[in-house]
């Protein structure tokens, strides 16, 4: 059974005049790292909300088809059912933090689901360790930097032991170094077996971690596959996807008759391929 299945799913927000998602059909399996990208307004955020039933149960509208997350239909089970399957992390961590300190923040979710106190304490300590939050233990969330807040928000999400982390542009308010820290944490969680669905425009930062890229445009999936294959397509430039700089150089060289052996995703990969081509 797939971890997430979109079965011909369409959705239109109340008051909107066009569909936000149009007949989406796909499955996402355990352990995958899926990057969702596409132009502004293409349906990426709606896709994330549909995974954990926020669409259509909190954000209402016209629905056709079904989404099954961990085998459960998101139209037929309560939103709370999905909180412990799909953990959502958003762009602005400030909007997500609800309590006054790190420990309470992490404990908040499991307390609400009635997890036993001993088990909660165990999870709090494990997550403080995993996300390197020891120094923040006594800090109020409003005294933390954006990157620190986002680490706490991720810890709070993981406290529910989700099977998939769904992150909607989790680094776009962060400075580059803090962004890198968050993305390293997410890549590490994926290596430990957690599935990741990440929405991002800046593929320079994430393409190297992804096992799969899904390209959306106007509510539809227009390409889905291996990052190198997808980013080598001209379709990316046509619809305005931020192709990594190294991949752009590869494409420009190709139009000038120079084809490197593989499609690079980072500057270092590009340099290696150039070196290989000269056998120096």
């Amino acid at each position: 059974m797939a971890l997430i299945e979109f079965a011909d799913f369409s959705f239109k927000y109340l008051g909107a005049d066009s569909l936000a998602l149009k007949r989406i059909k796909l499955t996402i399996d355990e352990g995958e790292y899926v990057v969702i990208t596409g132009p502004s307004g293409c349906g990426k955020t709606t896709f994330c909300r549909a995974i954990n039933a926020l669409v259509p149960q909190f954000h209402r509208g016209y629905v056709a088809g079904n989404v099954y997350t961990d085998g459960k239909n998101t139209r037929e089970n309560e939103v709370a059912t999905f909180a412990s399957v799909a953990g959502l992390v958003f762009q602005n961590p400030e909007n997500q933090l609800v309590t006054l300190d790190v420990e309470k923040e992490i404990a908040f979710g499991p307390e609400n689901l009635g997890v036993a106190p001993d088990e909660i304490r165990r999870r709090v300590e494990e997550l403080i360790d995993l996300l390197d939050l020891e120094e923040l233990r006594e800090k109020h969330p409003h005294e933390m930097s954006g990157g620190e807040q986002q680490r706490v928000a991720i810890a709070a999400t993981l406290a529910l032991r989700p099977k998939v982390l769904v992150a909607d542009e989790p680094t776009s308010n962060l400075d580059p170094t803090s962004a890198e820290v968050i993305l390293e944490i997410i890549a590490h969680l994926n290596k430990r077996g957690m599935a990741v669905v990440l929405v991002e425009h800046r593929l320079d930062l994430v393409a190297k971690d992804a096992s799969r890229i899904i390209l959306m445009n106007k509510g539809r999936i227009v390409a889905d596959g291996n990052p190198r294959e997808i980013l080598a397509m001209d379709l990316c430039e046509e619809i305005g996807v931020g192709v990594p700089k190294a991949t752009q150089v590869y494409k420009r060289l190709k139009t000038r008759g120079v084809e490197l052996r593989n499609v690079p995703l980072t500057g270092v990969e590009l340099a290696e391929l150039v070196q290989e081509a000269t056998s120096r």
Binding site: D175, A179, P244, K245, A246, T266, G267, V268, A271
Partner: peptide
Amino acid sequence: LAPPQMTLAARA
């Protein structure tokens, strides 16, 4: 700041 990918490529 993270060095831009083009700077990393040039360095390598």
